[in-house]
Design a protein around this nucleic acid. Structure first.
Length: 470
RNA sequence: GGUCCCAUCGUCUAGUGGUUAGGACGUCGGCCUCUCACGCCGGUAACGCGGGUUCGACCCCCGCUGGGAUCACCA
């Protein structure tokens, strides 16, 4: 069977957004699943809107998503010779012609057509004039005026277009630069692309492109149009639906694997399975299970999936992703058992890596800042005795191991007659500054004897001061 | 407006000519418990409407309605 060759062709006019990421992902997954090739192509023929920053932003986003490409990036701006050559081919074979109709005249025509309720299409004024090249002439494709063009879409099925609906679209502007529908086809032909997976919004372009393939005597690729991703109000996804840029999700603490897991499941299914590792996705991805209807982007489900992936990622692997968030907070640490245990206490409690870094503060700081309300409630005279007794118990311990710690607490419970909860909460506040944290024994073990003892002493001091004041 | 596409819980979806229409997120209730989570158990909620075809349609066909896409010398 022929080797599958897919591509992702973003135009660098902004950051990589969710829809683009999903298109890239489906093409990448399909290529990887089929052991084919995935090509990156930058569609920058619009020299006015294309920027170097956008190109970099796209690379950055793909890198984060861990979507790699086998060929490219190819830049259309550097392929003009090829386009010129193909335009000439079309001119020579009579499939294209020069047109000198002015933009103003065309605009007027469009307006009129819209008023009558018809499709605003070029009327073919110059079609048979046999005009030669002049300064303001554009080049149009000579499209068939009757018959049908059918798109055999692997996702949507057959879609039939009446050729009379199509018009002689422009393939080269008056300055000689080629236009989108034309360059896409030339690129896909010359790059050997045989599978085109793209957004739904391209279906109306496809008959034009099919006609071009035929005029160029090239075999058609397999087309598949992915359903759109919409915002919560069922309209096209935009800023007001939340973050659009893919890298914004990286910065919010999402795992790339969680992000792609969500994106793929939005429009693709594998029975009832919701959670997929990257490898599993590559293994199980298929075109047949892609849905036909548009999906609404649901940030809450993405968040839940992120939590699942954080939970399932082994601590030693998670470090790589968590590190930037810890470093941003100024925490220094070395990879190893310490940070891994820290992760183990937090991974079931964190929905994002940012949450995790936020909650991990007490493991890294020298001093603890207390939640005001909690301090008022828990650092009171009745906490003095249990804290003092616990301090004695802990000081006597050589090693801070869970079993020993439990015994230490038990001893305090027996002496004071208090339940564990009554003792643990003041201790938790003393150690973390907060009323919620991982298990009391695990954090004591990780924080370590020196810091634990000093933090308990600090708390005792505060309680004493309060007593003195009152 | 023309053309094209789409239609199962609020959302993502599974599903078959005969099912108690399944799962996940959310939500509600409970259990677990040193706090918060995790986890576990349970509840909530869907086949858009109208015609056909058929012994029987959520499923097949038609229409309607609703939603989306697209109509550039942008991509």
């Amino acid at each position: 069977m022929e080797k599958i060759i897919t591509r992702f062709p973003p135009s660098p006019t902004g950051y990589l957004h969710i829809g683009g990421a999903r298109t890239a992902l489906f093409n990448w997954l399909y290529a990887r699943h089929m052991k084919g090739k995935f090509i990156l192509r930058i569609e920058d023929t619009d020299t006015v809107r294309s920027t170097r920053e956008s190109v970099d932003a796209i690379f950055e986003a793909l890198e984060w998503l861990e979507i790699d490409w086998d060929e490219g990036p190819f830049f259309q701006s550097r392929r003009f010779d090829i386009y010129t050559e193909y335009i000439q081919k079309l001119l020579d074979s009579g499939f294209a012609y020069y047109c000198t109709c002015s933009p103003e005249k065309l605009e007027e025509m469009r307006k009129k057509a819209m008023e009558v309720g018809g499709k605003p299409k070029y009327d073919g004024t110059c079609r048979e004039k046999g005009l030669g090249r002049t300064d303001n002439a554009v080049i149009r494709f000579k499209a068939p005026v009757s018959g049908t063009t059918v798109l055999e879409d692997v996702i949507k099925g057959n879609i039939v277009f009446q050729n009379e609906e199509l018009d002689d679209f422009i393939i080269a502007r008056s300055d000689g630069s080629p236009t989108y529908n034309f360059v896409v086809v030339v690129d896909d032909i010359t790059m050997g692309i045989n599978t085109v997976l793209r957004g739904d919004d391209h279906v109306m372009n496809t008959p034009k492109q099919i006609l071009l393939y035929k005029a160029l005597n090239s075999p058609l690729p397999t087309f598949g149009h992915l359903p759109m991703v919409l915002g919560s109000d069922r309209t096209r996804l935009s800023k007001r639906h939340g973050a659009m840029s893919v890298t914004a999700y990286r910065d919010m603490g999402y795992l790339p694997d969680a992000f792609i897991n969500y994106l793929v499941r939005l429009g693709w299914s594998y029975g009832d399975q919701e959670f997929f590792s990257r490898d599993e996705l590559v293994e199980k991805f298929s075109l047949e299970n892609i849905g036909r209807s548009a999906g609404i982007f649901n940030p809450e489900k993405l968040l839940a999936l992120n939590a699942d992936h954080i939970k399932e990622t082994p601590p030693d692997e998670l470090i790589k992703y968590l590190s930037p968030f810890l470093k941003e907070k100024g925490y220094s640490f070395q990879e190893g058992p310490f940070i891994e245990s820290v992760i183990r206490t937090l991974n079931a409690r964190s929905k994002t890596l940012k949450d995790m870094a936020d909650d991990a503060g007490f493991y890294f700081t020298d001093t603890v800042s207390y939640d005001e309300k909690a301090a008022k409630k828990l650092f009171k005279p009745s906490s003095f005795e249990p804290l003092r007794l616990l301090l004695d118990q802990l000081e006597a311990l050589d090693e801070f191991k869970e079993a020993d710690l439990e015994n230490a607490f038990k001893a305090v419970m027996e002496k004071t007659g208090l339940k564990l909860g009554k003792i643990a909460q003041p201790v938790r506040l003393a150690l973390t500054g907060k009323t919620a944290s991982p298990g009391i024994f695990e954090i004591i073990e990780i924080i370590g004897k020196d810091r634990v003892l000093s933090r308990i002493k600090d708390a005792i001091g505060i309680i004493k001061d309060k007593e003195a004041c009152s």
